Amino acid sequence: MDFSSLTPLEGGWSGQTFLAEAAGERSVVRIYPPASREPAAAEIDAAVLRLVRGLVPVPEVLEVRPADPAADQPGLLVTSYLPGVRGDELLPTLEPDGLAAVGITLGRLLADLGGMPMLHAGPFVDPELRVGDFGVDGLPEYVEQRLPELGHLSPGEIDGLREVALAAQALLDTVSRACLVHSDLNPKNLLFDPESLALTGVLDWEFAHAGHPYTDLGNLLRFDRAPAFEAAVLEAYAARRGTTPDPALALARAADLWALVDLSTRRQANPVAARADRLLRTIASSGDPNAPAPPG
């Protein structure tokens, strides 16, 4: 493939996803530098797309090539191009009724993903989607592991984060099963038909893993908290999964703490990580996982 003919796609922070066009046909090319992830990363991502295709609107895998570190050759994943408008562009334009309609769609999507069972939590380690081990026993241990990278937090914030992590883990332990987790399921990675508001694509599965059923719900509602949208997401999710909105939201906030800690360690990488860092510090200071999200 001629990399010089590729056009960077807007919306991501990695700078590794491009639009290709040949003979009037569009496709999407994702490049995996040898040092960015494991050599099989492109194959793992392709396997996840094949797993969910037909259940979730995802692009078709057209070509996949693993990285070759010895030859300094990047991995490559080519998929079909999906139409639609990104959710981060669409949601700000919608009135409450439109936000509620999109929220219902996404609540059902999250519930369906939360119902795709895995034997245990962990990262996908090969193209067969075998599940490995995260190497950490719970959120409190994870916080301790990442503290050297959280030196910008005050002593009070660190103490508060430890307390929040303990309470969050106790809540998360009330749900013992694992499921397929997208792990970056926010409006930037969702495509919609701007007229019908139908979901046309779920993109960027590079962080997919086997994990907690409420992880994706926490990700989606981290910053997007318009009342009509949040209520519709929670009601649709709860109806599909046989729970009620308030416990679902509490579990979602608890599950999202894992990602907030990780993003806080990378707070200078991009605006989303910086905003997540501000949210984590607010949660740590207040002791409230449901603390208001900071402005973008």
Results as ranks from 00 to 15, higher is better:
Ala178Leu: 01
Leu263Cys: 05
Lys188His: 15
Asp224Gln: 14
Glu163Trp: 00
Ile158Trp: 01
Asn270Glu: 11
Ala236Val: 02
Val175Asp: 06
Arg222Glu: 14
Asn189Thr: 13
Leu199Ser: 11
Asp184Gly: 10
Val202Trp: 07
Leu221Ala: 07
Glu206Trp: 04
Leu221Glu: 05
Trp205Asp: 12
Ala170Arg: 15
Glu235Phe: 00
Thr215Glu: 14
Val181Lys: 06
Arg253Asp: 05
Leu197Ile: 12
Thr244Ile: 00
Arg253His: 14
Leu251Thr: 02
Ala238Leu: 09
Ala259Trp: 07
Leu217Tyr: 08
Ala238His: 08
Pro245Thr: 01
Gly218Met: 07
Val181His: 03
Leu217His: 08
Ser196Gln: 07
Ser176Arg: 13
Ala228Arg: 09
Ala208Asp: 11
Ala250Lys: 05
Arg177Gln: 08
Leu199Val: 11
Ala210Cys: 09
Leu217Gly: 03
Asp193Ser: 01
Glu163Arg: 13
Asn189Leu: 08
Pro247Met: 02
Leu166Asp: 13
Ser196Tyr: 04
Glu235Leu: 06
Pro227Lys: 10
Asp193Gly: 01
Gly201Pro: 08
Ser264Tyr: 07
Pro213Ser: 02
Pro155Met: 04
Gly201Asp: 07
Ala238Lys: 09
Leu263Pro: 00
Ala259Cys: 03
Ala208Cys: 07
Lys188Met: 08
Leu260Gln: 08
Ser196Thr: 15
Gly160Glu: 10
Phe223Gly: 14
Trp258Cys: 01
His182Cys: 04
Ala269His: 09
Pro194Gly: 12
Gly160Asp: 12
Trp258Thr: 02
Val175Tyr: 05
Ala232Gln: 06
Phe192Glu: 09
Ala250Trp: 00
Ser154Asn: 01
Leu166His: 13
Leu172Ile: 01
Leu172Trp: 02
Glu235Asp: 14
Arg222Ile: 00
Val175Asn: 01
Leu257Ile: 13
Leu180Lys: 06
Val164Asp: 04
Arg266Asn: 14
Arg253Ile: 06
Ala232Ser: 12
Ala254Phe: 07
Thr174Arg: 15
Glu157Trp: 08
Ala168Glu: 02
Leu217Met: 10
Asn189Phe: 10
Ala165Leu: 06
Phe229Tyr: 15
Ser264Ile: 04
Pro227Ala: 11
Ser196Trp: 05
Pro245Cys: 00
Val261Phe: 02
Pro245Phe: 01
Asn270Asp: 15
Pro155Ile: 05
Ser264Gly: 10
Pro213Gly: 01
Arg162Gln: 14
Arg266Glu: 12
Gly156Met: 09
Val202Ala: 10
Glu163Asn: 03
Ala254Lys: 10
Ala167Gln: 14
Ala273Thr: 15
Asp159Gly: 04
Val164Cys: 05
Val181Ala: 06
Leu203Asn: 11
Glu206Lys: 01
Asp193Trp: 02
Glu230Pro: 10
Leu220Met: 13
Thr215Gly: 06
Ala254Thr: 02
Arg267Met: 02
Pro213Val: 01
Gly156His: 02
Phe207Asp: 13
Thr200Ser: 15
Leu260Pro: 00
Leu180Val: 08
Ala250Val: 01
Asp173Lys: 05
Gly211Lys: 04
Asp246Val: 14
Asp256Ile: 00
Thr265Gly: 13
Asp262Cys: 00
Leu203Lys: 12
Arg222Trp: 13
Val233Gly: 07
Gln268Gly: 04
Arg222Lys: 08
Thr265Leu: 08
Leu257Arg: 03
Arg222Tyr: 08
Tyr214Pro: 00
Ala238Arg: 07
Leu199Pro: 08
Leu221Phe: 10
Ala167Ile: 00
Arg162Ile: 05
